[in-house]
């Protein structure tokens, strides 16, 4: 039995995740998957030629990291999100600096809003990605912000 989406989760902030290690081969694999052929995603010499320390992640790569962090909320049974009724509504990436291979990124997940109207719920989450050292030290440089909204259809719709 599906439970209703719980509005009390709005405003919640989760502790920072363990760091995600951005690897060169993961950047290449993701770039191939989205048809991103720019050499800065694939070739170290090209990336360094543009002034980057390592391979540059494609513009939507941060979703890999954000969707992991979002699981803390959307997979929590108490949140009441029935994933078979979920439709992805919108997504926005803001890069405070490009993500590059070698980054260790910890994510702080926020539930920005939970709204309900006519049997439809909409939840908006925001992931703040920070560069940390490999041991997961204090969050340092703010690297990216990923906001995502999901629509959850009610039982009768």
């Amino acid at each position: 039995m599906a439970t209703a989406v719980d509005p009390a989760f709005a405003g919640r902030e989760y502790p920072a995740t363990a760091p995600y290690s951005v690897g060169r081969e993961k950047i290449r694999e993701f770039a191939v998957a989205v048809g991103a052929s720019h050499p800065a995603h694939h070739d170290l010499v090209a990336a360094r030629g543009l002034g980057y320390p390592d391979l540059v992640a494609p513009p939507t790569f941060a979703v890999v990291i954000a969707q992991r962090a979002e699981q803390q909320y959307v997979a929590d049974p108490d949140a009441g999100i029935d994933f078979s009724r979920v439709v992805h509504a919108d997504e926005t990436f803001t890069h405070h600096r490009p993500i590059v291979a070698g980054d260790e990124l910890a994510t702080v997940l926020h539930v920005d809003s939970v709204t309900q109207r006519a049997g439809i719920s909409m939840v908006t989450t925001r992931c703040e990605l920070f560069a940390v050292d490999a041991e997961g030290g204090d969050p340092g440089e703010h690297v990216a912000t990923v906001t995502s909204s999901l629509v959850v259809r009610g039982e009768d719709s």
Binding site: G35, A40, H41, P58, P59, T92, T94, P98
Partner: peptide
């Protein structure tokens, strides 16, 4: 979005995408 990356010539130049 790759069409924009190719046009601008630098994937790091994309600062926001929604």
């Amino acid at each position: 979005v790759d069409v924009v990356t190719d046009w601008v010539g630098d994937p790091g130049a994309i600062v926001r995408y929604g």
